[in-house]
Simulated assay, not measured.
Amino acid sequence: MADLSQLKKIINKMVDRIAHRPTIPLDQQLWDEHDIAAYFGYSLDYTKKHIMSHRQFPPARMLPTKDTYVPRWKASDVTKYAMAFDKQTISY
């Protein structure tokens, strides 16, 4: 019974975290390389070599950090790029 009680507590904490997390619209989300790989369902290595290196893949926005810059992509740009392959010609 103690295991079931502990499991319920963990599930309730998870539900609370999800319920209190703000929903950010897709057109306002910024994705990193891991998010892009997860969206396409490929490994990070494959995504970098074969998806993100494509000449028509959307450009990254370089966001400043303390010492350097990190690339981030607008999620809606990435999804538009992916959906462009439904058409006969790429129109990204």
Rank of each mutant, 00 (worst) to 15 (best):
D3V: 09
L4V: 08
Q6T: 10
L7Y: 12
L7N: 10
K9N: 13
K9S: 14
I11S: 02
N12E: 11
K13M: 15
K13A: 15
D16G: 09
R17Y: 06
I18T: 03
I18R: 08
A19L: 13
H20R: 12
R21A: 15
R21P: 00
R21F: 09
P22K: 04
P22A: 01
P22G: 04
T23G: 04
I24R: 06
L26Y: 07
L26K: 11
L26N: 12
D27R: 09
Q28A: 02
Q28K: 12
Q28M: 11
Q28P: 03
L30W: 10
W31N: 02
D32S: 11
D32V: 10
D32P: 08
H34P: 07
D35L: 02
D35A: 10
D35Y: 00
D35C: 03
D35T: 04
I36P: 07
A37K: 05
A37C: 04
A37Y: 06
A37N: 04
A38E: 14
A38F: 02
A38L: 10
Y39S: 05
Y39G: 05
Y39V: 01
Y39K: 02
G41I: 03
G41W: 00
G41L: 03
G41T: 01
G41H: 01
S43A: 07
L44Y: 08
L44I: 12
L44D: 11
Y46H: 11
T47Q: 04
K49W: 00
H50T: 01
H50I: 03
I51H: 04
M52Q: 06
H54K: 14
H54E: 11
H54G: 08
R55F: 06
R55E: 14
R55H: 09
R55M: 08
R55L: 14
Q56S: 15
F57T: 07
P58H: 03
P58L: 00
A60L: 00
A60D: 03
R61K: 14
R61A: 09
L63W: 05
L63H: 07
L63F: 13
L63C: 04
P64I: 06
T65C: 01
T65P: 02
K66G: 12
K66M: 09
D67H: 13
D67I: 09
D67C: 08
T68M: 13
Y69M: 00
Y69T: 06
Y69D: 02
V70D: 02
V70S: 01
P71A: 04
P71Q: 05
P71I: 00
R72G: 02
K74E: 10
K74M: 14
A75P: 06
A75N: 06
A75W: 02
A75Q: 03
A75R: 00
S76K: 07
D77N: 13
D77E: 12
D77F: 08
D77I: 02
V78K: 07
V78S: 09
T79V: 13
T79W: 08
K80R: 14
Y81E: 07
Y81S: 05
Y81P: 01
Y81H: 11
Y81G: 01
A82C: 05
A82G: 04
M83W: 11
F85E: 03
F85Q: 03
F85T: 00
D86Q: 15
D86K: 13
K87M: 10
Q88V: 12
T89S: 15
I90F: 06
S91Y: 08
S91Q: 14
Y92H: 13
Y92Q: 14
